[in-house]
Amino acid sequence: MERIPKALIVLTWLTSAVFVVALYLVLFWAPQEAIMGDVQRVFYFHVAAGWVGGLAFLVTAIVGGIYLARGEQRWDRIAVASVEIGVVFTFINIVTGSIWARPIWNTWWTWDPRLVTATIMLLIYIAYIMLRQGIEDPDRRARFGAVYGIVGFISVPLTFLSIRIFRTIHPIVVGGSDPTALGAFNMTADMRVAFFFSLFTFTLIYVTLLWHRLRLQHLAEKIEERKLTALSA
């Protein structure tokens, strides 16, 4: 049985401590927003979760390209681990957005370009996980995953830019909003601290989860190999 690397144990504890600090900053340090009230506090982790989703899918596209160039399985391992984490955080991003929208837009859901593109992006990567499971041959599976990860990544900048190129009610907090946006606000200095610390915290959570998930993937492949050897003996 492989032991957990010391660096990973330290990183896990560090991430947990940083997460507690981030919770304190967003729930107590940052001031209450003047109009929206406490629900605005969801914004900090909502954006951070969306950032991790985009980052995870970017990593998948990059390692997909490296896999196609080199053909080494370890890059495919990173791709699948990263997609899984990206799906979890994109799900958080969409659901928390819906919860924020209920008191601010007076609806849980509206067919706004940002909401639609984000949901399509989530479905694309859920399909990535499902379709991979249907391919038995590891090389074919990895090649498929790499190409899918690169092509699927188109949905990420499209989601990011959707509120900047289409007419939308979704606010753009960083960089100024469309005048028709509902729920926009100007961040105070304390809000900015909470916001950027949340982005940093969620990036750290992504790195930590990715490392654990890679170890899981490695163990699963090792056991699969041993099972095949045991059956053929």
């Binding site: 629900v39 979760a49 958080i92």
Partner: peptide, 23 residues
């Protein structure tokens, strides 16, 4: 003054912490 949206904030953080915890 600010709207009373505390319940929505609690729901939001329950989803965030719950989903990460479940994963």
């Amino acid at each position: 003054g600010p709207a009373d949206t505390l319940n929505y904030m609690i729901a939001g953080y329950t989803v965030i912490l719950g989903t990460i915890g479940l994963y």
